[in-house]
C-alpha cells in the first residue's frame, strides 16, 4: 500500500508536469506558469483523493533527489558566459549586489511591519532568487520552503509580466542593464523574458540570476539579523 501511494504521487506529478509544460511551450504566456499549474493540479488530485500532504512527502523526497546536483550544474552556463562576466565585472557585481540587497530588505521589512508570522517573514526574504537557493536560504532561517517557492514564483510572474514595461518607463534602455535587472529581480522567469528581447539581454539575465542567488545567500545572515 505504501509503495503504491508513493508511485501514485510520482506518476500524477510527472503527468502534471508533462501536460503543463506542453501547454506553456504551445502558448508561452507568463501566466501559464508550469510550477503553479502543475502544483495546482497535484493539490486538486490529492484533495479529491482525501490524501493529506504527509502521504505526498515520501514521493516528494524521491523526486527532489536530483535538485541539488541540478543546481550545482548552474555553474556550466555561468562558465560558458565568463567573457561577459569579465567584460562587465564592475557593473554586474555592483548592480546585482544592490538589487539583491534592496529586494531582501524591502520584502523583509514590509512583511515584518505588516505583522506576518516570523516563519513567513523568513520565507519572503529570499523571494528574488531562483527556487533552489531560496528554499535552502529559507530553511537555514526556519522559514517554510513551500512558502519561499510560492513567493519566488509570484515575484517571477510579476517580473515577466511587467518588468520590461517598467524598465522602459524608468528610461532603462541599455540592453546590458535590462538583462541584469530582469535576472536579478525575477530570476528564471525574468531570464526567459530577457531572452525574448535579445541574446545579450538573455545572457546577462542568466548571469545575474545565478549571482543574485549566491549574493543573497551571503547577505542573508546580515539581513536576518536586522529583521530579528
Amino acid at each position: 500500500m505504501y509503495s503504491l501511494t508513493v508511485t501514485f504521487t510520482i506518476v500524477i506529478t510527472l503527468c502534471a508536469y508533462v501536460a503543463c509544460r506542453a501547454l506553456y511551450l504551445r502558448y508561452g504566456h507568463p501566466l501559464l506558469n508550469i510550477v503553479v499549474l502543475s502544483a495546482g493540479v497535484v493539490i486538486a488530485i490529492l484533495a479529491l483523493c482525501r490524501m493529506p500532504y504527509t502521504t505526498y512527502v515520501p514521493g516528494r523526497d524521491i523526486m527532489t533527489f536530483l535538485l541539488g546536483p541540478a543546481t550545482v550544474g548552474l555553474a556550466v552556463p555561468l562558465y560558458r558566459n565568463r567573457h561577459l562576466l569579465r567584460k562587465y565585472a564592475l557593473a554586474i557585481v555592483l548592480s546585482v549586489a544592490a538589487g539583491a540587497l534592496s529586494a531582501m530588505v524591502t520584502a523583509g521589512l514590509i512583511a515584518r511591519f505588516g505583522g506576518l508570522p516570523q516563519e513567513v517573514v523568513m520565507s519572503i526574504v529570499p523571494k528574488g532568487v531562483s527556487i533552489p537557493f531560496a528554499i535552502e536560504i529559507a530553511r537555514l532561517y526556519d522559514g517554510i520552503p513551500a512558502l519561499a517557492a510560492a513567493f519566488v514564483v509570484a515575484t517571477g510572474t510579476l517580473g515577466s509580466l511587467m518588468g520590461a514595461t517598467f524598465l522602459t518607463r524608468l528610461g532603462i534602455t541599455n540592453p546590458v542593464a535590462r538583462g541584469l535587472a530582469l535576472g536579478t529581480v525575477s530570476h528564471a522567469q525574468g531570464t526567459a523574458t530577457a531572452l525574448m528581447e535579445g541574446q545579450e539581454q538573455g545572457s546577462m539575465a542568466g548571469l545575474a540570476m545565478i549571482l543574485a542567488g549566491i549574493l543573497t545567500a551571503l547577505f542573508a545572515p546580515m539581513v536576518m539579523l536586522i529583521l530579528n
Binding site: 503553479v36 490529492l46 541540478a70 510560492a150
Partner: peptide, 14 residues
C-alpha cells in the same frame, strides 16, 4: 529544473 519545484510547491496545500 522547474520539475523539481512542483513537489515543493505542493507543500502549499497546508
Amino acid at each position: 529544473l522547474v520539475f523539481f519545484f512542483i513537489p515543493i510547491a505542493v507543500g502549499l496545500m497546508d
